[in-house]
Amino acid sequence: MKFEGTKDYVATDDLRIAVNAAITLERPLLIKGEPGTGKTVLAEEMSKALDAELITWHIKSTTKAQQGLYEYDAVSRLRDSQLGDERVNNISNYIERGKLWESFEREKRPVLLIDEIDKADIEFPNDLLLELDRMEFFVYETGETIKAAQRPIVVITSNNEKELPDAFLRRCFFHYINFPDEETMKQIIAVHFPDLKGRLIQEALNVFYEIRDVPGLKKKPSTSELLDWLKLLLVEDISPENLKERDPSKLIPPLHGALLKNEQDVHLFERLAFLARRERN
């Protein structure tokens, strides 16, 4: 199994190597990076490229590690027992499988995405250490040990909201998705908008990187925002000349809503435009 990127996803060399190392050595792959640089998409594309099923486990602040293994539905067993249901005698009727268990059961090696692991409680990764290491766990209620038929390919994404414990990190391969440089960005655009005119791309990229360079932005626009913006430019049929117009009073690019997601950032741009206009007069 080797990952080479797909026709919809541009994988840089370093990303490719990290992914392949994780696949070959059967270790989890931890992906970090600015929001919007394609962390979650990577897992989807991996599953496509490797022709493996994708099992996604979205983590929330209330998620417990146990929920990934299994949950014992005591309440419905209690209810069934009061209604005299037959099922109540077999406790395994009330064990609900979690995502990890699901991925352990697959015949073919699946891709398990643990999305935004940093959202959960700080102890969460530690609670999963052993399970991810040995790919097995014990079900107390039924007394059985669940062991992975095939070690799933585990991809973990993090937005850096919490530090992950060292013991956990040591077991992973790590990749930081850097913000793509202009060349890579062109490739990414070519993948998403194959028939976009070269000149428009160039102008749009110039505007985009200029915006990213404005100091003091709360949220710098990232790849996914650029793609959205390009889509809008296409729909609205904005010409490259329009973008090229470097009139200082029109500092705010057309359809900026797709790029600037923060009121304060838009204000910042308006202020800059205002200053530019005043200087000219």
Binding site: D13, D14, I17, A18, N20, C172, F173, F174, H175, Y176
Partner: peptide
């Protein structure tokens, strides 16, 4: 996992040894 290329070795060792940007 990698071919005998220095760049590849750099990427691999980075991914295996560094866990924090």
């Amino acid at each position: 996992v990698i071919e005998d290329k220095v760049e590849d070795f750099y990427y691999l060792s980075r991914s295996a040894l560094v866990k924090d940007e």
